[in-house]
Computed example of a mutant assay.
Amino acid sequence: MTTFEQAPKGILIAVGGNEDKGTFPRAKKQYHLNFFELGILKRIIDAMGGSQARIEVITSASMIPEELGALYLRAFEVLGCQQVRVMDIREEADALKPEYLQRLRAASGVMFTGGDQSRLFRIFSGTAFHQILLRRYYQEEGFVIAGTSAGAMAMSDIMITGGSSSRALLKGSVKLDRGLAFQENVIFDSHFVKRGRFGRLMEAVATHPFKIGIGLGEDTGVLISQGNFIETIGSNLVIVVDGHHIKHNNTSYAAPGTPLSIENFRVHVLALGNYYDIKERKFCVGNKQPAWEE
């Protein structure tokens, strides 16, 4: 895998899943932004350059790729973006097709849908497709890699692949593997608030205490610029788990299936308009990228 020494010039957008695609029933609108046009997909379009953006939707993680692809095509069309196509990549061989590599080189950005994050790693890791994504993300201003649910979880170099929320914080209940490494200093989890995944993200961070855990609520995400500055977008919450100050931590020697004990986690709760500096591990409130507080 190609590595880059400089901070990425592109933008990463990780979404917790179930983002408003213009299909939420009216009764549920109280839990989401008042207007679909102000939501996450619109923000993705804006980050990619507006209505003329060339967006490639990648449905590889899904077991229903045709249905999901059609849903995103309709949603982006409603938002005025016409140059949207779906890449029907189901196996590693598909990712090597010259047509898809050419389209990837011409795209303003890509959108990975939900499904199984392990499939994304199996299909793309180390391929020419993966290398083009990494190169464009690190070297091209304005290039966007977006992903929702599994598409977000696969973005980090250490990836949560499974684990029961009810058994979290019992040694070994959370399954971890390598991810696509667009973001190397965090671990993402999705559907975070609704599915009660706090414990499993804590275990993942306790296992890798120099990573920042980012729990993404549904219809909520983070926009990461320069590989470091997080802006919260969407209608729900983002939970940040920082393990840098952990003191006691029995994760390395506890027997499988036994309870973990961890001292001095730091947790931040971010909503729309909040920012977080990953490198400095600082939280800030504001509607613009702020001067970071001491």
Rank of each mutant, 00 (worst) to 15 (best):
E231R: 13
E203Y: 04
I262M: 13
F121I: 06
Q6S: 14
F36R: 07
E231A: 08
S165H: 14
K194R: 15
S156V: 02
I45Q: 02
H245L: 12
I89E: 00
A168C: 08
A168N: 03
S235D: 09
G16S: 00
K42E: 13
F36M: 07
H245Y: 13
E280K: 15
V269E: 15
A95I: 05
V15L: 13
G50I: 09
E37V: 10
R85P: 06
N34E: 15
M63H: 12
Y138I: 03
G151C: 05
G50W: 11
M1D: 12
I13V: 13
W292K: 13
S190Q: 14
Q82G: 11
M48Y: 02
Y72N: 04
Y253L: 14
D219I: 06
K175T: 13
L180K: 01
R119W: 05
S252D: 14
R54Q: 12
T127G: 00
I44M: 11
N185W: 07
S125W: 14
R105Q: 13
N264I: 04
K211D: 07
I45E: 01
A181L: 04
E92H: 04
E263Q: 14
I246Y: 03
K42R: 12
K97F: 06
Y137A: 02
D219L: 08
G115N: 04
V267F: 12
E140M: 10
D20M: 09
G234Q: 01
L216F: 04
E5K: 08
Q183G: 11
A168V: 06
R103F: 06
C81L: 12
A255Y: 10
G243Y: 01
K288G: 08
S166H: 13
L216P: 00
G142I: 01
E92P: 09
E92C: 08
H191Q: 05
P8E: 06
L101M: 06
G213F: 05
I212M: 09
V193S: 07
S166A: 14
F124D: 00
Q183H: 10
M202R: 01
I40L: 12
Q52T: 15
S108H: 04
M202H: 02
K21W: 05
